[in-house]
């Protein structure tokens, strides 16, 4: 594994497997009465979040703290970017304070790659624009494996705004690396203009896809997509691509529902569907901490897993 986690593509199937194995031991740590190990004592992890995010930032922070790393937080509202400091100056300044890992979230695609060129510390992509969100994909894989066992030849539908989804891009890479078959389900305006090279099938008929899948991942539908005229209205979107109560009945008995959060209940997913036992949304969040512990451990620690 490289010193950074920028893309799922950096890991490949073996790297993903290794991280998922490691995650098992950190799930065990998280279940202890005192869920903390001294593995990263004396190491410093800084969160550099240029975009609002509560859950991902807190998840990384919890992961770092459970590994006994020192944590620092840099978020855009409080920081010197509002004084006009450039991204590079900020990053170089942070590194000068002595950090071992930088967790980067930015609304622009590619920023973690830029940061990685400027610093020696390990860089973890915590979501870059509409590009990738590798730790989300890892926790999705981990959660699915808990429910489904192996992902080989499993069928997974990713439904919704794939065009603007970093989760979808990372998930497509991760699921297919682990042997699953992925179908993207969305109106053409919410798909990327070109899917050349994507190992996926595409459908515009959610009702036809749902009975065939082992898991359906519902993407968040941003309200702005309506003003951009990518869909005529959210009501029409819900009617055609929402996981409504009636549609959820088309799923097989063992099929699983994922959502990267935060959910727009009543838009892409009906409230009561989100609360069904087949929905693993809360489990995703819990696993997120363990997966991020595994990532930080792999990047920063030397020695055996606890």
């Amino acid at each position: 594994m490289t010193a950074n986690l920028l893309s799922i593509a950096d890991l490949g199937a073996e790297g993903i497997e290794e991280l998922l194995r490691l995650t098992d031991s950190f799930v065990e740590v998280s279940e202890r009465r005192i869920p903390k190990v001294p593995t990263l004592r004396g190491r410093t992890v800084v969160s550099l979040f240029y975009e609002e995010s509560t859950r991902t930032r807190l998840s990384f922070e919890a992961a770092a703290k459970r590994l006994s790393a020192d944590t620092m937080n840099f978020s855009v509202a409080t920081a010197s970017v509002t004084k006009g400091e450039s991204l590079r100056d900020t990053v170089v300044t942070l590194e000068a304070m002595g950090v071992d890992a930088v967790i980067v979230r930015h609304a622009s695609a590619g920023v973690p790659w830029q940061v990685a060129r400027w610093v020696d510390a390990s860089v973890v992509n915590a979501g870059d624009g509409c590009h990738e969100h590798p730790t989300q994909a890892l926790l999705d894989c981990y959660t699915l494996r808990q429910r489904l066992g192996s992902l080989v030849d499993r069928r997974i539908a990713i439904v919704g705004d794939v065009k603007h989804s970093r989760v979808a891009r990372s998930d497509v890479l991760a699921y297919t690396a682990l042997g699953a078959h992925v179908t993207l389900v969305a109106p053409p305006t919410l798909l990327p203009p070109s899917l050349e090279g994507w190992p996926v099938e595409v459908s515009h008929d959610l009702d036809a896809v749902l009975p065939k899948v082992d898991a359906v991942e519902v993407l968040r539908m941003q309200k702005e997509r309506q003003t951009e005229a990518l869909v005529p209205s959210l009501r029409e979107y819900t009617a055609t691509y929402g996981l409504t109560r009636d549609r959820a009945r088309l799923l097989g008995d063992d099929a699983v529902i994922l959502h990267p959060g935060p959910m727009n209940r009543g838009v892409e997913i009906a409230a009561e569907v989100a609360d069904q036992p087949r929905s693993v949304v809360t489990r995703q969040v819990a696993n997120g901490v363990a997966v991020r512990m595994a990532v930080l451990f792999l990047l920063l620690a030397s020695g055996a897993a606890p």
Binding site: H131, E132, R169
Partner: peptide
Amino acid sequence: HEGAWSSWLGIPGMP
């Protein structure tokens, strides 16, 4: 440029 790369990189392209 709008195409395979812009689609993967998550950056809007011009056709």
